[in-house]
Design a protein around this nucleic acid. Structure first.
Lengths: 245, 245
DNA sequence: CACATATTATTGTCCGACAATCAGACAGGC
DNA sequence: GCCTGTCTGATTGTCGGACAATAATATGTG
């Protein structure tokens, strides 16, 4: 019958006030925030209260600190902080590897397509470089995984669409552990990845979006095959990798 | 030559310690956290320090409060909190409507496909209900927008893949403002949406994933047409809607 | 001007305090 | 028995003040 009359503690109101100013670009990126004492004076609250508000903004990635610095600066959420939040949420919700795989299958061809259409020469070179790195370094398992992730990331950046880049990050983060197992256990995995990457690079270079998407579809399907061959149950949960920047 | 030896302030170490316990399911969802005083005692820090740590966890959605409650409970990040973070990040990065549209185009057909394959009768009914609501309520603009979002959300849930659900949320959030404009300005928009939804519901009901994906592709392409007819520049930035739960 | 040094400002942390209010116990009235 | 009011203790939200460590800035010196 009645809505609860909303009360919000001061630290929340302060944090929202600051966040609004940031979102409406009133406080611009790179700008230094006033000192805690000054904020406390302006909001007419205690410094402890201000500090609680700042911690909230800090962990949403809206405020950051320069390396070894003391003051807080306005920042935009990085790929890592956004991806960390999302992958953390997914890990907590008992997401299975097959779910992540399915999402990759849905989204990667679209990314490849967009990348092929809009890639700049520089972005293409970064993509090709990632593929070369993967092909060149046949020894180390962990580096290989990183290189695969770099390849996907480079493709996302080549699409010139930040939505893709940000969606990519958490998916890759969750993919990595199982990908490492695949590379370890499936002999032909490296070769197949290498081939797919080469074809995708070529298609992107030629601005052939159809072929890029088609090869990406094949590439992602290969991962599923890899799970089966490596003996990873599709319904196993994605690991809770705790390193959330 | 040497890496900077990592010093982390106490509030960060405390927050990470608690977060790790949550991520490794040591603290289970719904469980009440010890009181602030007790945490301060265990960590051997001051209560203020504990409170700063708690604020961080609170805003990553790992801790929450029951309505009108005082204690903090372990929670899993909700769709809203995850979506809020991501859409906030995108809004700050000058994402354009065309970027969001492109992501929808990439991801929605895959969602429709998965939903068609795996929908339960209950999920199908929720999807159909959302379509009926949209078709029935021709008057109100804002409700219509909500109904469209509900349709996409219901589809995401029908896919039984949380990754899709979580990816959907921020995209829909960013879509809404421009969708409202389309519905206002484009006379035939409602009709076309209604038709597409009907076909998608039918395809999902028949477990015909191909048709579901195809109609979804058409549906999303229609939005782009809507932007053009409504005179919304594709390169306009997605609004910074400030209501980030 | 470059570089070392002193000063100041700012953050991180602590302590103690108190009002508001939530949770639970407890009793009284229908 | 169930609802209502009252009491008590525990817990959170907020405050004020304090101090060490150190980053930021000013100052002097070659």
């Amino acid at each position: 019958m009645f809505d609860p009359l909303g009360y919000a503690p001061a630290y929340l109101r302060v944090s929202e006030a600051i966040r609004d100013r940031i979102l409406r670009r009133d406080l611009k990126e790179g700008q230094a925030l006033p000192t805690e004492t000054e904020l406390a004076r302006q909001f007419e609250v205690n410094r402890s209260t201000v500090r609680e508000a700042l911690r909230k903004l800090e962990s949403s990635g809206l405020l950051g600190r320069r390396a070894g610095g003391k003051r807080l600066y306005v920042t935009r959420p990085t790929r890592e902080s956004v991806g960390g939040g999302l992958s953390q949420a997914l890990a907590l919700h008992e997401t299975r590897v097959v779910d992540v795989w399915e999402a990759l299958q849905a989204v990667q061809p679209g990314i490849a397509q967009a990348a092929a259409l809009r890639r700049t020469p520089a972005a293409l070179e970064r993509l090709a470089a990632a593929a070369r790195r993967f092909a060149g370094r046949r020894a180390d398992r962990d580096h290989a995984v990183e290189d695969v992730a770099d390849f996907f990331n480079a493709l996302g950046e080549a699409s010139d669409n930040l939505v893709f880049v940000l969606l990519n990050e958490p998916l890759l983060r969750l993919l990595k552990p199982s990908l490492a197992v695949i590379i370890d256990r499936v002999a032909q995995a490296r070769g197949r990845i290498e081939t797919a990457q080469k074809h995708i690079v070529n298609a992107v270079a030629a601005k052939d979006s159809e072929t890029a998407a088609a090869w990406m579809t094949r590439h992602v399907r290969d991962f599923r095959r890899g799970y089966e061959v490596a003996g990873i149950p599709l319904s196993s949960e994605v690991g809770q990798d705790l390193d959330v920047a």
